[in-house]
């Protein structure tokens, strides 16, 4: 899995790891958009360039085994990767692909990843990640979830 430095086009291999207790000192609301300390009891992952300590993206999730589903609770990029002047591309996509891998590994052909964005950005997620819409919930299932994994898992 990799991300793209927009200014150079260079690709950087990334790793996605569980957030540990020390990370919460750095996961401030100013830089990472949400109060991540409230997610301490959840399953939370961070995205880093391999060999770097700088957290570029974070996702928290809830596994719902009786629905063969993983629901994304919060997902964000770091401050400098927001907006038109962002440094790296593909951070959110890699995080969604990672959650998709967790779901397919656990639930196989029944796997589902869901999230519930606000109306104004839902269309972006539908178009970019080929998500299905049900009410206010967007979801990835087979076959789209496999396409997304293949797209990012290289």
């Amino acid at each position: 899995m990799n991300i793209v430095e927009i200014s150079t086009g260079n690709l950087y291999d990334i790793e996605i790891l569980p957030v540990d207790g020390n990370d919460y000192k750095f996961l401030t609301k100013g830089r990472y958009f949400f109060n991540w300390k409230l997610e301490k009891e959840q399953e939370v992952y961070k995205l880093l360039i391999q060999g770097s300590n700088e957290i570029l993206g974070v996702v928290s999730l809830e596994r719902i085994p009786n629905e063969w589903r993983i629901h994304i609770r919060l997902i964000t990029v770091s401050g400098e990767n927001r907006g038109k002047k962002k440094r790296y591309d593909k951070i959110i996509g890699n995080l969604i692909a990672y959650v998709s891998k967790l779901a397919v590994e656990e639930f196989g052909e029944l796997a589902c990843v869901s999230l519930k964005p606000k109306t104004q950005i839902a269309q972006h997620y539908i178009e970019k990640y080929n998500m299905n819409t049900t009410g206010i919930t967007l979801s990835l299932e087979v076959p789209e979830i496999l396409d997304l994994i293949n797209q990012y898992d290289n």
């Binding site: 958009f33 629905e67 609770r73 919060l74 997902i75 589902c112 999230l115 049900t134 009410g135 979801s139």
Partner: peptide
Amino acid sequence: MDESIEHGVDSRYHSKEEQESESVKLMQAR
């Protein structure tokens, strides 16, 4: 679509009722 909007999503359910209602609809569609 302006990709600058892709910075973060708060996708937490506001209540147990909302989660259950969405779960039922989603499961039927799936």
